[in-house]
Design a protein around this nucleic acid. Structure first.
Lengths: 249, 249
DNA sequence: AATATTTTTTGATAAATATCAATAAATAAG
DNA sequence: CTTATTTATTGATATTTATCAAAAAATATT
C-alpha cells in the first residue's frame, strides 16, 4: 500500500513505485442517463409535465442555463452535448460535459438560493425540454418513486464531484490532463478515437490548468506516443500508461 | 467589473484593483441543520426509524464513517463536531466540518456504488444515531415531504461543493487560507474568536495546501494584524480585509 | 485568393507552492 | 520533573505552474 511519489520522467520509466495493490479507478465515473425517471410517472403526472413543457433547440455556443439567474426551469436534454461550468471572478472551471437524456438544474431544487449555481452552454446542436419548476415539484410531491429516482441522479452527480475535487487537489498537471483524456474517452465518447467539441482553452478549464500548460502536456503525451493529436481529434494509443499517469501523477 | 489581479503586498496596500462592483460572498455558505426533517414524519414512520436505530457515542478521533466501506447506515449527529474528508492515494482533503443536528451519508442513497465516498471522524465527543439504511429508505418511500426535504439537504451540500471547487481552482494560497478562516468563523463557530479542534496538518488539508505553506500564511496574517493566533485559538481582528483576500486572492 | 482575425503553439521567464531539513515548542510518558 | 515524542515553525531550495510575448497555424471575412 506504499506508493513512492514519482515524477513522470521521460528518460527512464514513467514511474517508480513499490507496490500496486489497488486497481485503477478512473476519477471520471460513468455517467448515467435520466430517461428512466419518466417511466415511473402516471398518466396524470406525465400530463402535468406535458402541460408545463417548452421544447427548444439550441445552437452550438448558446446558453441553456446562466449562473446567477433565477432557476425557474428543470431542463431535460433530449439530444446534444453540453458543458457545465462555474464562472469565478477570474477563472472558469468546467464541472462536466453532459450527454443526451440528462436533467440539468436538479441541484437547484429546494435550495434557499433560488438561482442556478452554474452555466450550461451547448457544445453542439441541442434539443431540450424546459419544465416549469413549480410543475416539476408538484410531480415530485405526488410521486415518491420519481422523487427517489431524482435523489439517485443528484447523488450520482455528487459522487463525481468528490472525485473531481480529489483529482484537482491531489494530482499534478500531467495527472490532470491524463485524467481528462480518459474521462473524455470513457465517459463521453466511449471509444479510443474521438473528436472533441472543445477548444484548447476549454480543455484547460476542464483540466483546471492554464491553456499553455495543457497544450504542452498534450504535446508531451503525443511525443511519448501515448496519444495521437490532430487539431480536435484525439486517439488514445497507450491507455494503460495514461491510467498510471492519472493515478500516480 | 474589471478586476486587476493583484498580489497581496505588505509594503503597499493589500490590493490594487479598479472597481468593486460585486458584494463579497463567502465561499463557505452557512450550513443548515437537518432536525426539521423528523417533524415531517408520522408516528408510524418515526416508529420505523426508532426500531432501526442505534445510539452511539464516539470519542475524539474515532471514525464514524470509513470511506470505501459498505454504506449500511444513515447517521444523524445529535451532538459534536466532525470532519468529513476524502482519502486520496497521497493526500487527504477535508470537504467540510459538520456540526450538530446533521445527517451523514445521505450522498450514498440510491447510488450504484454501495460504499461511502468519504471518511468522517469525530473532532470532539459525538453523540450519533445510526439508522439502518433499508429502514430509512422505507420511510423515504412512504413520505414524499420527507424525501423532498432530504433532496434539500443534499442540494445544499452540493452548492457548497461547487463553491469549494471554485475556491480550490481559482484562489491563490492566501485566498484559500483567508477563506478557511472565514469559513471556520462564520459557519462553524459563528463568532470572531474560537478554538479550533484541528491540527496544523488538518488545517492544511482543509485549505488544500501544504502544512508549511499554511503555517507561513497564518503567520503572515498575524504579522499584518488580520488575526491573532495562539496555538489552536484564533481571533479575527480585520474581517473585511480577510474577506478581500479571500475574494481577490 | 488575399487579408484579417482568432486559436494554437513555442519559448523565456517569473511567480507560486511544495519539499526537505533543521530547530523550536508543545504534549505525552515514564 | 525529566525525557521522549509528536507537532509546529522557520529557512533554504527545488519543482511546478502560470504568465507574458511572440510566432505559427487555422479559421473567418472580404
Amino acid at each position: 500500500m506504499i506508493f513512492i511519489k514519482k515524477y513522470y520522467d521521460k528518460s527512464q520509466q514513467y514511474f517508480i513505485f513499490t507496490e500496486t495493490t489497488r486497481a485503477y479507478m478512473s476519477n471520471c465515473i460513468k455517467d448515467i442517463t435520466h430517461n428512466e425517471a419518466f417511466e415511473l410517472l402516471t398518466e396524470s403526472e406525465l400530463l402535468i409535465l406535458k402541460n408545463n413543457k417548452t421544447s427548444i433547440k439550441y445552437d452550438k455556443g448558446e446558453v441553456l442555463i446562466k449562473q446567477g439567474t433565477l432557476s425557474n426551469s428543470i431542463i431535460f436534454v433530449k439530444k446534444g452535448i453540453s458543458k457545465i461550468y462555474i464562472e469565478g471572478s477570474q477563472k472558469k472551471i468546467i464541472l462536466t460535459i453532459k450527454r443526451d437524456n440528462n436533467f440539468l438544474g436538479l441541484s437547484s431544487l429546494y435550495t434557499e438560493d433560488k438561482t442556478y449555481q452554474y452555466t450550461v452552454t451547448a457544445l453542439e446542436k441541442c434539443k431540450v425540454e424546459l419544465y416549469d419548476k413549480m410543475a416539476f415539484k408538484e410531480v415530485l410531491r405526488k410521486n415518491v418513486a420519481f422523487s427517489n429516482e431524482i435523489i439517485k441522479y443528484i447523488n450520482h452527480n455528487t459522487s463525481r464531484f468528490y472525485k473531481r475535487l480529489l483529482c484537482i487537489t491531489e494530482k499534478n498537471s500531467r495527472g490532470k490532463v491524463a485524467d481528462m483524456i480518459l474521462c473524455l474517452s470513457n465517459h463521453i465518447f466511449g471509444c479510443l478515437e474521438f473528436t472533441i467539441p472543445l477548444s484548447r482553452q476549454e480543455l484547460a478549464e476542464f483540466a483546471g490548468l492554464s491553456m499553455e500548460n495543457t497544450i504542452r502536456i498534450l504535446k508531451e503525451f503525443e511525443a511519448d506516443k501515448l496519444i495521437k493529436l490532430k487539431g480536435k481529434s484525439f486517439k488514445i494509443k497507450n491507455k494503460s500508461m495514461l491510467e498510471r499517469i492519472s493515478e500516480f501523477g
